[in-house]
């Protein structure tokens, strides 16, 4: 009798809505950059899933510091040298063949766009020292540390990757480096501008003066977008003057917005030190010897537009 009554009731209702939306659910909701893809309060989007802010893994680079000027190493110039970098953060380092658990994973270290080392042990809650090798050359160098889940998926949130631009110098040569965008950064096709952040050492930025006299370690920066910088320096087909904008004072080194356009694909972003009269800035670190060693100062990163 009771079974029949229950059957009648089930047939009469056919079911009902029994689940309540729980905004505290972690790792359940999908998310995206779209307006409708936002996460509940207290959560952030990681790998297209909303995760609790307090549980999102992070990584930071302690050494070298941002724009740090490191002296040339003991090895010969151009040879490989070892640099012990320090890392910290909240990612739980686990062996790469472990289960994929949010918040756990390993670190992939890249130096000057080359894979360097994988870190899957230790505790980032304290400082982890990692030796990396790089060319012992004067100029800007880049270290990137990316946290990766054990299924091979990189953590794609902002704190999941740490980058560091630093310099190795001889103590006299001017230095130029692009801090942002980072090499390999992807932009959507519909993006009409990007922000550029640069750093210079031992070079004084002054406004351009086409009639001015070039001065030592003084001038401005030309920014080229999607140009073959070698052709531009050689002024092939007037490329030399096809720069987008200039950086003429230090406060422009921060976020400088430049317009971009074009089709999908990889394109270069190039910065070049220029004299006050727009001529190419050159520097000879050993002016007293008989060897002509005039150096130009160019930094270039490859970006991707999709």
């Amino acid at each position: 009798m009771m079974r029949r009554l229950a059957a009648v009731l089930v047939a009469l209702t056919g079911g009902c809505f029994t689940t309540d939306l729980d905004p505290t659910q972690v790792g359940a909701f999908a998310c995206s950059e779209d307006p409708g893809g936002a996460c509940p309060d207290g959560q952030s989007c990681v790998n297209a899933r909303c995760e609790a802010d307090g549980e999102i893994p992070t990584v930071q680079i302690g050494f070298p510091e941002d724009e740090q000027d490191l002296p040339l190493g003991d090895t010969a110039v151009g040879d490989r040298r070892t640099l012990e970098i320090t890392l910290s953060g909240t990612l739980a380092l686990t062996p790469r063949d472990g289960d994929d658990v949010f918040g756990e994973g390993h670190l992939e270290v890249t130096v000057d766009d080359e894979p360097s080392i994988t870190v899957d042990s230790g505790s980032l809650s304290s400082i982890v020292t990692v030796p990396v090798t790089l060319d012992n050359t004067v100029g800007a160098h880049r270290i990137s540390v990316r946290s990766v889940r054990n299924d091979g998926t990189p953590y794609d949130h902002e704190g999941g990757v740490a980058t560091r631009l630093f310099f190795i110098s001889d103590g006299q040569t001017p230095l130029l480096g692009i801090k942002s965008p980072w090499p390999g950064t992807e932009f959507p096709l519909e993006a009409t501008s990007i922000e550029v952040e640069a750093a210079v050492l031992r070079f004084t930025l002054i406004p351009a003066d086409p009639g001015g006299m070039p001065q030592p370690k003084t001038g401005h920066i030309h920014i080229y977008y999607d140009k073959d910088i070698e052709d531009c320096i050689a002024d092939v087909e007037g490329c030399d003057k096809q720069y987008l904008t200039t950086i003429v004072q230090p406060d422009q080194l921060g976020k400088l917005t430049i317009p971009v356009a074009g089709s999908a694909g990889e394109f270069p972003l190039s910065l070049v030190l220029r004299n006050v009269d727009h001529s190419l800035f050159e520097f000879d670190p050993n002016p007293d010897d008989d060897i002509e060693e005039a150096q130009t100062f160019i930094d270039e990163v490859a970006l991707v537009r999709r």
């Binding site: 809505f17 029994t18 689940t19 905004p23 909701f29 995206s32 893809g37 936002a38 899933r49």
Partner: peptide, 20 residues
């Protein structure tokens, strides 16, 4: 109800957002 349960407890196979 089942769809919402799948989002919250079933791994969200359809990748529904919080708004969805």
């Amino acid at each position: 109800s089942d769809d919402l349960d799948a989002v919250q407890s079933g791994g969200n196979p359809d990748d529904l957002t919080f708004g969805d």
